[in-house]
């Protein structure tokens, strides 16, 4: 199974050091939770893992080789839902499908009943669920999730926890930025902004 790791990572934005000397390892079947106060750098670390940001120092490794081709390995869920309000949920999802099964993806997050609803009429929680459906359009081993349970009700959050567990049980890995790390039953918690 694959192993994704970061060694001595530092992130600098402008003149500000967001974090420095962070290391982590997550293997296939593993869940890593990133915790920390607002502004600690959870999102920056996730963006760095996705390749959106370049580390000021340190390296990312995939099976002990330099990490490349993130587009083949990563499913990304940012804080924004990337939904177009004027498109229906199905139309929004179809844009990302590339041959994936949109019906099955909608069913995963109990969104089938809202498939024909324009995204603008959804509640915040429903929008989040619609965005989460993208994770199930194609199999990719590494899920990077930034506050995935934002706006979700208790039932949807439990369902998401179970789906993340299921992904991990299938050999995938998940890295989750969250304020409630214990809820995800992670294998490890990386506290950012705290003394080592």
């Amino acid at each position: 199974m694959a192993v994704f790791s970061g060694q001595s990572l530092s992130c600098v934005r402008g003149q500000t050091i967001v974090f420095e000397n962070l290391s982590f390892t997550v293997g296939g079947g593993g869940i890593l939770a990133l915790s920390g106060v607002n502004g600690a750098g959870k999102t920056s670390l996730l963006r760095l893992m996705a390749g959106f940001l370049k580390p000021a120092a340190g390296t990312l490794l995939w099976n002990n080789e330099p990490f490349d081709a993130p587009e083949e390995k990563i499913h990304w869920l940012g804080v924004d839902n990337a939904l177009k309000p004027d498109l229906t949920v199905r139309e929004n999802l179809s844009y990302w499908a590339r041959g994936g099964d949109t019906d099955a993806a909608l069913a995963k997050m109990d969104m089938s009943a809202f498939a024909r609803a324009p995204a603008r009429y959804l509640s915040a929680g429903q929008k989040r669920r619609a965005a989460l459906c993208r994770l199930f359009l194609s199999p990719r081993p590494l899920w990077l999730l930034d506050e995935p349970a934002n706006s979700l009700d208790a039932a949807s959050e439990s369902k998401l926890h179970a789906l993340v567990k299921e992904h991990a049980a299938g050999g995938g890995m998940a890295i989750i930025a969250t304020h409630n790390p214990q809820a995800w039953h992670p294998d490890n918690i990386l506290k950012i902004g705290a003394a080592a």
Binding site: A50, G51, F52, P70, E71, E72, I74, H75, W76, G78, V79, D80, N81, A82, L83, K84, W96, R98, R134
Partner: peptide, 17 residues
């Protein structure tokens, strides 16, 4: 602007195309 603000461009950067 919309695609940048709603995170679409982030997702596209992780698209194989």
């Amino acid at each position: 602007r919309d695609d940048d603000a709603d995170g679409t461009i982030d997702l596209l950067l992780l698209s194989p195309a």
